[in-house]
Amino acid sequence: MSWILTITLNPAVDLATSIDRVVAGPKLYCKAPRVDPGGGGVNAARAIRKLGGEVSALVAVGGAMGEQLLQLLVVEDVLAVAVHVPGETRQSFAVTDKTTGEQFRFSVPGETMTADDGARLLSAIAQAAPRDGYVVLSGGVTPGLADDFPHQVLAAIAPRTDKLVVDTSKAALAHLLAAPGQPVHVLRLDQREAEQAAGHALATVADSLGFAQNLIARGVGDIVVGGRGAEGSVLATREQRFFCRAPYVEVQSKIGAGDAFTGALTLALSRGEALDQALRWGVAAACATVGSEGTALFESGQVEALLPHCEVEGL
């Protein structure tokens, strides 16, 4: 097993609470909130640590919220590599309506970064990248950074490793798909992102696998993983195609489920697991997170209990 580095360009201090009923107008008195470190790479690192992996979380942080996020990572036993940037680290806020079970999620944008901020981040990433290990770039690319930042990260880590796992969104994802250049090692998309990129619905597992292999043929990634919501996830390479069916869990919170998937999948790959088994670990971690409240992610025992129920088939 090799050390893993996760990168979070736009982290957040996550607050999650609940109330009997969400209604407009009157002041609403919520339950005491749960507070966790958040953002794609941060959650992936939390998942890796919960499963016994060795990980560092490189985070761009600023202000009092940034200091709080670093303190929360200490509580989670996640080693932080802090890159201090101007402005204030953002907050995210989620409220669950206990009557309906609906979850309302609010996320404010991060501070706009400059080219100098981007250069400092790339320098820190290059220094922190583990030799021959995995690097996970997860979450959105901060406003102000170039849309091709994932490829800039790939170039920055090239002297040490080529194992870049990317799980991003919006303009950065669109650029990666439209102008792939050198393929990333692993690319993950959820179903909405995949359907938007494909320009049509991906109604079946075969549709998702076909789209994934199309991306591979275009040089976007060596391994492409696609979520299919509660149904499960697919994984494809040029030669292999797998579908892992997700077991049923009662939904408590969807926050961090995709990040937990990415973290668990990456950890399994770093441990030398076969692709189909790595996919099972990812699905089990995502399901366990969905079954946990607020921003808690999961406990390792929950993942291990679900793992035998995550059925993988080669297609």
Rank of each mutant, 00 (worst) to 15 (best):
T6H: 04
P11L: 07
A12G: 12
A12Y: 11
D14Y: 10
D14K: 08
P37H: 10
P37R: 15
P37A: 09
I48V: 08
G52W: 00
E54A: 15
L58R: 03
E67W: 13
L70Y: 08
V74D: 10
V75T: 12
P86Y: 12
P86L: 01
F93L: 13
T100R: 06
R105L: 06
S107G: 11
P109V: 08
E111K: 13
E111T: 13
L121P: 00
A126L: 08
R131F: 15
Y134M: 08
V136M: 10
L137T: 03
A155M: 12
I157F: 08
D162L: 11
V165W: 07
D167R: 06
K170D: 11
A171F: 13
L173E: 05
H175N: 15
G181H: 07
P183Q: 04
V184E: 01
R188C: 03
Q196V: 05
Q196W: 14
Q196S: 13
A198R: 14
T204N: 05
I216P: 07
A217R: 15
G219C: 03
G226Y: 05
G232A: 12
S233W: 11
S233H: 13
L235Y: 00
Q240F: 12
P247T: 02
P247A: 06
S253L: 04
K254S: 14
I255P: 01
L265N: 06
G272I: 10
L275F: 02
A285I: 01
A296K: 09
V303Q: 02
E311Q: 12
